[in-house]
Design a protein around this nucleic acid. Sequence first.
RNA 1: GGGGAGAUAGCCAAGUGGCCAACGGCAACAGACUGUAAAUCUGUCCUCUUCGGAGUUCGAAGGUUCGAAUCCUUCUCUCCCCA
Length: 306
Amino acid sequence: MRKPLVIVVTGPTGSGKTAFSIRLAKKLNCSIISADSRQVFKEIPIGSAAPTNEELNEVKHYLVGSHSINDKFNAGVFEKEALKILESLFKENNIQLVCGGTGLYIKALLEGLDNIPDSSDEIRTELDEIWESDPEVLKKQLQELDPEYSKITDLSNKQRVIRALEVIQLSGKTYSSFRKSSQKARDFDYVILAMELPREELYQRINRRSELMIEAGWIKEARNVFPFREVNALQTVGFRELFEFFDGRLSQEEAIEKIKINTRRYAKRQLTWIRNQQEVSWVNPEIETESVIKIIKDRFSLDELS
RNA sequence: GGGGAGAUAGCCAAGUGGCCAACGGCAACAGACUGUAAAUCUGUCCUCUUCGGAGUUCGAAGGUUCGAAUCCUUCUCUCCCCA
């Protein structure tokens, strides 16, 4: 018997992944596991452009609104939870869908993360304070403690430097000693479909969607989570700008304009990742599901697909 | 009609004789990415380039000067004030 198959639907924000994946899931009679680092949080469905309740009723979704912004959620947690869900879903149907725009999460699920110690808030806070007062201290420290990683990483990238030092503190070993980039064995095959749209059209969709999200009550949603503005889950395009609006540093119009710009920039980063980190098949989000199924059939010479 | 201010690269904007292809910022484009990833960071950004350079720019046209985005003249346009 052949291995189960995971169909991954990815693409930049606003490219139409959600609608596409729901169409495909209904055809294949399977569920959808979301690979989206913000849609997991139940407090921010509007701001993360999560599937609507109607959409959620059409197809069973996992990892959408399943966690709280105060929970710890990251690529490692995602890898573990998504694998567990997949395993149980494969008992019903050996084709399943993963849909999302968080490239790192998808990579973690498909290839696995190396066994590196999990993050520690205490150490991070401590290192963060040092960085804020003088980044050079930590840069030098990393160069001494892990010259190998210092060479390949960007020392002006605070998050990278802090993570490396964090791992060193936690383990007593260098960060580079953990980084094997070894692919973990997975008992499923996968194919990645990426939504392809002309850049101009994508940007127009993003602009329009930002307005719709505001109309749908995004500002109220943001007000509700405003007290937790420091949590990682809210270091997110849109919320930051709305918080600035609440602070009185931006007018509402300015905040919305900035949201559009920053969402476009985010989409661009996603495209860079997809283009260079993964091997994907580009498809137009309007494509007929029959054509998609044909692409997959051809790839895996599957006959049981109907 | 009279008086004043200003026109700089896609946008905002600094520069008031040589160190200016022109500070900064934004947008745009490209890239990196292993537990913060909707995060974080890097590069390009007048044209051409064998990346050493070469060529054309600072509203327009003239002029002064060894040398002008910067000084002078005229013209065009924009804004403000008084009529």
